[in-house]
Computed example of a mutant assay.
Amino acid sequence: MKILHLANDVRESGNGIINVLVDLACNQAKRGHEVVVASGGGEYVGLLERHGVRHIALQQRPLPKVMLPVMAMKFMGILFKERPDIVHAHMVTGVFLGKMGKAVKDYTLVSTVHNEFNRSARYMGMADRVVGVSRAVSDSMLRRRVRPGRVATIHNGTLGTPRFRENADKATTIAMFRPSVATVAGLFHRKGIDVLIRAFAASRAIEVGAHLYVIGEGRDRAAFETIVRELKLHERVHFLGFKENVMAHLKQTDVFVLASRREPFGLAVLEAREAGCAVIASDVDGIPEALGGGTSGILVPPGDVQALAAQLSRLLGSPQALAEARRKARKGIERFSAGKMADDYLELYEAARR
């Protein structure tokens, strides 16, 4: 089967959409399929090519209207040369291109909906098959009146990702103080970093000597740093920025927290589980599915500072509770492998082509 993936770029920036695409493309090529990624480029081009995935430069970011015909014509040229069986769009621009291309070439257009809470997500429903990364996302697309027969749920998988193997030897740049609490997230209001900082301050974390590590970048970082200064936590809260070797940091983490207000699935939850962290996360959208409904981690209401603080206090104040939470986090993680995710998509492709 020949598969063409479309995305705005393949930059190594912590973007979960790109991480899923890279893992999927590499594992599909490993299974003997001819896989091509068309994007604006980025640091992952080399990794893709080392795993047998060809990359073609195709600018897909929003452009002035006068440039749209140029982008469309270049895409048509790719279609005539590559003749894919499947065009898999991971972002809205790719869906528009894929839909236009079907006027001149016969293939199955698949979209993966990662951020269904964005208004533009409704356009992802134009594909022949629409994949939600959680049941919560799929249900949202059904509410947008996408026909049920066109919607499927395929959970993301990170276990065995080629991205971590590639970065395994890169320096962590820091030895983390223990006990440690960490989050890996874009520094945006949606991710609830403010909730986590306030809960850390309200918990027993200071009493037991814990430190909080915020791993990631984003436009709201200054606002979160202001909260840290107001709470006089600058010696206990550390903003590390984006890290390539995030697994090395997670392996030094005792409690991982994802305090998102909205979250389609939460790749970082799976990464934390693989690293053996105890996990506390918001009971919202697709997060419960990444935690086995709560059997592999602790779920708290989104935005609830006191509930999060209470769970942090319980784990940081009891070695036995922390050890049990870490054990539970690892249980069942094998079902979220990057290989299984690739197999699930290949099965969907085959069914869609019949």
Rank of each mutant, 00 (worst) to 15 (best):
D9T: 15
G241N: 12
E225N: 06
A325S: 11
R314V: 10
T112Y: 06
I193Y: 06
D283W: 09
S203L: 10
L47Q: 03
V151H: 04
L47S: 04
M141A: 02
V66T: 08
A352M: 00
D139T: 10
R143A: 12
V92Y: 00
T93K: 08
V131M: 03
A248P: 10
G40N: 05
G42S: 00
A121Y: 02
D85V: 09
F117K: 09
G40I: 00
H114R: 13
A223T: 11
V269K: 05
G266Q: 07
N167C: 12
D283M: 10
G266L: 14
R119N: 05
H90W: 03
I287R: 05
L240T: 15
V137A: 15
F242Y: 15
R143E: 15
L212E: 14
G14W: 10
A201Q: 10
E34I: 10
R330S: 14
L348Q: 01
V35L: 06
E350A: 01
F188N: 07
M67L: 15
A338D: 10
R135P: 04
G132F: 10
S138M: 08
A307R: 01
K170F: 10
D169T: 13
N27G: 08
E82T: 13
L316Y: 00
R11E: 07
I287T: 14
I154T: 03
A278E: 09
V151S: 09
A310C: 11
L312R: 08
L187P: 01
A121E: 01
Q59G: 03
H114L: 12
N245D: 13
